[in-house]
Design a protein around this nucleic acid. Structure first.
Length: 855
RNA sequence: CCCCGGGUGGCGAAACUGGUAAACGCAGGGGACUUAAAAUCCCUAGCCGUGCAAGCGGCGUACGGGUUCGACUCCCGUCCCGGGGACCA
């Protein structure tokens, strides 16, 4: 009567069951403890790929296990539905982005069902729905009112042929990713969010995530925020120049004020306002324009392969004064000065900064023979003193100050403080903290995104839309041609509105928000996905926040995670979120690795992607082997963080294993039907029954630890394979000698329950075959516990080493006295032959593990 | 150039706090069942040496050193691979 493992029927049966019973709906008022599990929501690109399967399977394993552990698990799913691909597809296929997006969602939703992932579908959201993005518009208005959203001119990537701004990621080797035209830099008015106000808090709070987030992500975020401690110093201009520019001097920011006396030039961003004015005054305006163009060309020609930046410079014809010595310091425009950082100007110290050194060596300036390399820090100790003319690279290490009147002989580390104090005393500047993090540019000249709810009124200027007039709905009747400016700007009526302040005519802003805004707060919306009075209900936010486990790809290590951390805080600060839910949205983070395919031609593996043409379709694999086998394979091949290469043989192996489980448990179920209950719970040590029980309980212990604490299903599966093998063997041998119904039932049921999170369909089916019917399901069954006493009573293996080399294995009682153990070890023939009558100098005993005889 | 990971059999990997390196699986070899094949089950398996053989000895976690009774694990140096950032003063 033995049956075959037929995944297809089983899987549809249980998927239907879960759907009909709405098994994964979760109420907000369950008295049990909550667990909020979230995987990064997908972009509805068309169909699921293997990366999705891996991501969502891992989440499902964790979610189902926590549920069996007695948690009320919130496991929602939604769609990151705005974005450029929909717009491009619309242009190409003459299909509306909404239509394209929603039909992709429908298809992928059904695919998620087919791999058996348990979501609370009643909470499904899509960011392109007005019921979602209206709240984002409200947030924007609130941020604007608090001065946290603002407009300013910014230099942006502009494609002259597509007539739009491009994100940095959309520029490849200086060319537009769509039409390959050369990208230009343009100054345009754009919307920004003041994330830099939160730089310090975002940085400090990372310490609290230590051990809960991967180190790599914490480091990447720290570097991205890039805090530095330095000093601002003003270099006074000569009187005539000061009068002409309206500036007293040129300010710089430095982290090395100890090298102040080594300054031999002062470099400015070529577009620096003072630089332009100085150039104009000294008859070099045209030359500067040409220089700016030259820098821009050099910049756009730069490719990833060629990151060695050439230093370009131009003398502005003017000088400033060294603030301490009064010496004349030439002012230059240089391409290596970053406009947006510090003051857009730096002091040039060729002797002690590598970039300044290269600049001084490669850029000759008219009116100057060449820029001097002036050493003001000498290496400590007896090292040869440095001479500027002979140096081949800058000396950037600490040392002792020379040529710095008033600070001679000081250690450079002390001089940083001393010189800064002197700068402050003289009123030339102050010590400050700066960050690399820039404010977040969120406006896009795109159609398929959330409209920015702002108006431009001739009389009142820039005005926020009234809150009660939100949402500003994205119009559907828009023509997408792919050419020329923001599509919303071409809509006949969209931009025509009335000013909320004066009632007069006003022009609606036609930009939409960066889609990263959409994904910065979606995890909150899942608490109250349909609420019509606020983005999130306070009570529900308090119930569910924070996300206990967040799972997703490493590619979001910086941007998405920093934006979400920012939104979590800023929403509290504009009273859209209760303040008592904590400042961090994600308590634990796991970055799962990519799914790759080995390429014979390149002798290496590449991430599966449509553009590489190296994808494997999950749907086909499910058809062939079933969802359970696919899930198991994905979990078994390696630890979740590691990249893995797809192997057909691996999937077949998973499928074979499930066949073995099926035969073992189904076989056990058949035998158990006829057998009497009861059985011998105190099977004597050494008997097959006892061994089976020990194996069962040991498996519970390791699988629990592997899934619950270590998030390593791969090793859990290895233990489950061992239990399956032993159960199979036991049934084969036990036929003649012993058949303890209770122990066999225990082993079979344990195996099924522990497989529940990994291969849920198979587990439910076998559970039913073991006689459990009605409401008794694996899904809601308690996670099994193990009997410590049973494991403790086991005889243990002790490794015996002589001088650190393994010479024997002893099997002993767990409570053996140390003296007895030593005696038995020394008596062992294999040990004796190596001790050879010598007296041991020392015997190291590690209880329960090993004994080392040191001669 | 800077910062993070990582380097273990033919392959994916395991070894969790320094304590028997290679669990579990894939591919391989041998066998059972079968007319045959598929499926299934069993055995085997790091490398070198030695022995007719059970065995015995040595080497072995990228490389070189160190700490320790004992190192894949800790420390110092070198090489290679992957990822991120990159003129941030």
């Amino acid at each position: 009567m033995a049956t075959e493992y037929q995944p297809e029927d089983i899987e549809t049966k249980w998927q239907r069951h879960w759907e009909e019973t709405q098994a994964f709906r979760v109420p907000d008022d369950d008295p049990r403890p909550k667990y909020y599990l979230l995987e990064m929501f997908p972009y509805p690109s068309g169909k699921l790929h293997m990366g999705h399967v891996r991501n969502y399977t891992l989440g499902d394993v964790v979610g189902r296990q926590r549920r069996m552990r007695g948690f009320s698990v919130l496991h929602p799913i939604g769609w990151d539905a705005f974005g450029l691909p929909a717009e491009n597809a619309a242009i190409k296929n003459k299909r509306h982005p909404a239509d394209w997006t929603y039909s992709n969602i429908a298809f992928m939703r059904q695919q998620l069902h087919r791999i058996g992932v348990g979501y609370d579908w009643a909470r499904e959201i899509a960011t392109c729905h007005p019921g979602y993005y209206r709240w984002q518009q409200l947030m924007f208005v609130r941020l604007f009112n608090k001065g946290l959203a603002y407009r300013k001119g910014a230099r942006v990537n502009w494609c002259p042929s597509c007539q739009t701004v491009l994100a940095n990621e959309q520029v490849e080797g200086g060319q537009c990713w769509r039409c390959s035209s050369r990208v230009e830099q343009r100054d345009m008015e754009q919307w920004f969010l003041r994330i830099t106000d939160y730089a310090e808090e975002l940085l400090k709070a990372l310490d609290g995530l230590e051990g809960r987030w991967p180190d790599m992500v914490l480091t990447m975020q720290r570097n991205w925020i890039g805090r530095s401690q330095g000093t601002e110093i003003e270099f006074p201009l000569e009187e005539a120049d000061a009068a002409a520019t309206g500036a007293r001097g040129v300010s710089v920011y430095t982290t090395r004020p100890d090298t102040l006396f080594g300054v031999t030039f002062l470099a400015m961003d070529p577009s620096h306002e003072i630089a332009r004015k100085l150039a104009a005054r000294h008859g070099r305006a045209k030359e500067l324009e040409a220089f700016i163009e030259k820098c821009s060309v050099a910049e756009s020609l730069r490719t990833d392969a060629d990151r060695d930046e050439e230093k370009l410079g131009m003398f502005l014809g003017a000088y400033c004064r060294h603030p301490f010595t009064g010496e004349r310091v030439p002012l230059v425009a240089a391409n290596y000065v970053v406009a947006e950082y510090g003051f857009g100007a730096v002091m040039g110290v060729p002797a002690h900064d590598q970039r300044d050194f290269e600049f001084a060596r490669t850029v000759p300036l008219d009116g100057e023979k060449s820029i001097a390399v002036k050493v003001v820090i000498q290496p400590p100790g007896d090292a040869m003193p440095l001479r500027g003319e002979e140096m081949t690279e800058a000396y950037v290490e600490p040392g002792v100050l020379v040529g710095s009147p008033g600070f001679e002989g000081l250690a450079s580390t002390d001089a940083i403080t001393k010189i800064s104090e002197e700068v402050e005393r003289r009123g030339l500047g102050k010590r400050t903290v700066r960050y690399r993090l820039r404010d977040w540019l969120i406006s896009r000249q795109r159609y398929w995104g959330a409209p920015i709810p702002m108006l431009h009124c001739e009389r009142c200027g820039v005005v926020a839309e009234r809150e009660d007039r939100l949402p500003v709905v994205l119009p559907e009747d828009v023509e997408l041609t792919g050419e020329g400016g923001s599509p919303l700007g071409r809509h006949p009526t969209f931009s025509k509105a009335t000013c909320p302040a004066c009632g007069g005519p006003a022009r609606r802003d036609t930009d939409t928000m960066d889609t990263f805004v959409d994904s910065s707060w979606y995890y909150l919306r899942f608490a109250t996905p349909r609420l019509e009075t606020a983005p999130v209900g306070a009570k529900e936010a308090q119930r569910w926040m924070p996300v206990d486990q967040y799972i997703g790809g490493i590619e979001h290590a910086i941007l998405h995670l920093i934006y979400a951390r920012f939104f979590h805080r800023v929403m509290q600060d504009v009273e859209l979120l209760p303040r008592d839910i904590g400042r961090e949205p994600f308590a634990h983070l796991l970055n799962q690795g990519m799914v790759c395919l080995y390429c014979e031609k390149c002798q290496r593996s590449h991430a599966m992607s449509k553009s590489h043409g190296n994808t494997i379709d999950p749907e086909e694999m499910v058809k062939k082997y079933g969802a359970d086998a696919l899930r198991l394979f994905m979990m078994f091949l390696g630890p979740p963080q590691a990249q893995f290469d797809w192997k057909d043989e691996g999937l077949e192996a998973a499928w074979r294993f499930l066949g073995r489980v099926w035969r073992a448990v189904d076989g056990a179920a058949e035998r158990l039907q006829g057998a009497a209950g009861g059985g011998n719970r105190q099977a004597a040590a050494g008997t097959a029954t006892h061994k089976l029980r020990v194996r069962t309980h040991r498996t519970i212990k390791s699988v629990t630890e592997d899934i619950e604490n270590r998030l390593q299903p791969n090793t859990a599966i290895a233990r489950l394979m061992e239990l399956t093998t032993q159960l199979t063997e036991h049934l084969a041998q036990g036929a003649a000698a012993e058949f303890d119904a209770a122990a066999v039932r225990e082993a079979a049921e344990t195996l099924v329950l522990l497989l529940g999170p990994l291969t849920p369909h198979l587990a439910e089916e076998l559970w039913e075959r073991l006689g459990h019917t009605g409401a008794d399901r694996v899904l809601d069954h308690a996670w099994p516990g193990y009997d410590d006493a049973l494991l403790a009573g086991e005889r243990i293996q002790i490794a015996v080493q002589v001088n650190g080399k393994l010479r024997a294995n002893l099997e002993v009682e767990p409570d053996i006295a140390e003296e007895d153990l030593k005696a038995r070890a020394l008596a062992h023939p294999g040990v004796q032959s190596h001790v050879g009558g010598k007296t041991p100098r020392r015997i190291v005993v590690v209880p329960g593990r090993l004994l080392n005889v040191v001669l």
